[in-house]
């Protein structure tokens, strides 16, 4: 099929096949964008319009009250949640990149005699999905006194065996010549990593960083478990809380959802190339 597209239609002309292809793709694209449209529609409709009979794709009357309420502090939980998510996602991404890239470099390049065994340890850890260990991890973190704290939210997420492994695979393919030059200039392994290898790996760092940021911003189970105090809730927890509560301010909820998802959509549109690179790297190398 794909081959047919490439080789059968060298001369651009409108064929039935092409019409079907683009019609299908347009339909799929609209279907994929529909939920985002619904978020905006509901954020701009009053509660009564959202539940009233007779469905319409656009708001009956534009009502900005939902967004206004969000920024006027009527729901302080939401503002706090957005702030907490930003702090957690930024710190967790930065910390994870640092910790895991350093480990990946050591595993790929430092001729330490136990390095091979430690790679196996990392691989074995990969076998245990993090989500399954949320109960025991909660026990450990609560024993450290980190329940409802920044540390409890951020630190356990820094040590991703998967990310470290990705970095190792990447550094294995890193051009040796650059490192050799650095070593001739008198740099040790740390200096080589920090001053030569990292600065020359920015696209990969950006790609993994973006994936990590999205994962962190969107993560739900761990913040739900560890942030008992509302002042530490992330935006996902706040949204979920309103969603599963007995009462709901629908318009406000969708306005908040729009605000929570907008930064990521923007990032996805602007930095698509990096994310696709990171996603495929992450997908294939696994």
């Amino acid at each position: 099929m794909s081959a047919a597209g490439r080789f059968a239609g060298r001369v651009p002309r409108v064929t039935v096949g092409a019409v079907v292809l683009y019609a299908t793709l347009t339909l799929v694209a609209l279907l994929f964008l529909l939920p985002y449209l619904l978020i905006l529609r509901n954020a701009l409709s009053t509660d009564a319009d959202i539940t009233s009979p007779g469905w319409s794709p656009l708001p009956r009357e534009l009502d900005w009250g939902g967004f206004a309420a969000l920024f006027s502090g009527r729901d302080p939980l939401m503002a706090t949640g957005l702030r907490n998510s930003a702090v957690v996602a930024v710190l967790q991404t930065a910390g994870r990149l640092l910790v895991c890239s350093a480990a990946g470099y050591a595993l790929a390049r430092v001729p330490y005699r136990h390095a091979g065994k430690l790679v196996l340890v990392v691989l074995a850890t990969l076998m245990i999905p993090a989500a399954v260990t949320f109960v025991p991890t909660f026990v450990v973190v609560s024993s450290l006194g980190w329940v409802s704290s920044w540390r409890g939210l951020i630190v356990p997420g820094l040590f991703s065996a998967f990310t470290a492994f990705l970095f190792r695979q990447y550094f294995l393919a890193f051009p040796r010549e650059l490192e050799d030059a650095a070593r001739v200039d008198g740099l040790g392994y740390w200096g080589t990593y920090w001053r030569v290898v990292l600065p020359n790996s920015l696209p990969f760092l950006a790609a993994i960083g973006l994936i990590s940021f999205v994962e962190s911003w969107n993560s739900f189970l761990w913040p739900l478990v560890i942030a008992q105090d509302a002042s530490m809730w992330t935006v996902q927890v706040v949204l979920s809380t309103h969603l599963t509560a007995q009462t709901a301010d629908l318009q406000g909820l969708f306005a908040s959802a729009a605000v929570s998802v907008a930064p990521l959509v923007l990032v996805f549109v602007l930095l698509q190339r990096h994310i696709v690179y990171g996603a495929t790297e992450a997908g294939i190398r696994r």
Binding site: Y36, V214, V261, V276
Partner: peptide
């Protein structure tokens, strides 16, 4: 881009919708 955009959404927000 259109097909990839849902990946930006969290499960919580999707569940809401």
């Amino acid at each position: 881009t259109a097909c990839f955009l849902p990946a930006a959404c969290s499960y919580v927000v999707a569940a809401l919708v």
